[in-house]
Amino acid sequence: MVLHRSSPQRYRLRFRSLFDPGRGYCFPCDAAGQVDLDALSERARANYLFARGMMGRELHTPVVEPA
């Protein structure tokens, strides 16, 4: 049985704070966790690059979640 969806499943890549529960960063991504940097605003792109650099220092390793 094949299920067809009217819209594609959306995902987000979530970086959670190591020290402040409820804080962190989320970015739209595909099911594999790939973020389209060209689709992000300049500020979102800067935040994404910051989050990647702070993994293990201030942020957990990101997880892919349904949006």
Rank of each mutant, 00 (worst) to 15 (best):
R14Y: 06
R14E: 09
R14Q: 08
R14S: 04
R14N: 04
F15D: 09
F15L: 03
F15I: 00
F15K: 11
F15R: 12
R16T: 10
R16L: 04
R16H: 02
S17T: 03
S17L: 05
S17C: 12
S17A: 07
L18H: 00
L18E: 04
L18R: 05
L18Q: 08
L18N: 05
F19H: 10
F19Y: 08
F19D: 10
F19M: 08
F19G: 05
F19K: 09
F19S: 13
D20A: 10
D20Q: 12
D20H: 09
D20S: 09
D20L: 08
D20Y: 06
D20R: 12
D20W: 01
P21D: 12
P21M: 13
P21C: 06
P21E: 14
P21F: 13
P21S: 13
G22R: 09
G22P: 04
G22L: 10
R23F: 04
R23C: 03
R23E: 15
R23Y: 12
G24K: 02
G24C: 09
G24S: 13
G24T: 07
G24I: 02
Y25T: 13
Y25E: 15
Y25F: 15
Y25R: 11
Y25C: 14
C26P: 01
C26S: 15
F27N: 10
F27E: 11
F27Q: 09
F27V: 02
F27G: 12
F27S: 09
F27L: 11
F27W: 06
F27H: 05
P28R: 02
P28F: 03
P28I: 00
P28G: 14
P28D: 10
P28M: 00
C29L: 06
C29M: 13
C29H: 07
C29V: 13
D30I: 03
D30C: 09
D30R: 00
A31H: 14
A31V: 01
A31Y: 06
A31T: 03
A32P: 01
A32K: 06
A32H: 14
A32R: 06
A32E: 04
A32G: 13
A32Y: 01
G33D: 00
G33F: 14
G33T: 02
G33K: 13
G33M: 13
Q34M: 14
Q34E: 14
Q34A: 15
V35M: 07
V35S: 07
V35I: 11
D36N: 15
D36G: 10
D36S: 14
D36R: 13
L37M: 11
L37F: 12
L37Y: 12
L37G: 02
L37E: 15
L37C: 08
D38N: 09
D38T: 10
D38V: 07
A39T: 11
A39M: 08
A39C: 06
A39P: 00
L40H: 10
L40M: 05
L40A: 07
L40R: 06
S41M: 03
S41T: 14
S41Y: 01
S41C: 03
S41I: 03
E42A: 11
E42R: 12
E42V: 08
E42I: 02
E42K: 08
E42C: 02
E42P: 00
E42Y: 01
R43E: 03
R43P: 01
R43D: 01
R43T: 05
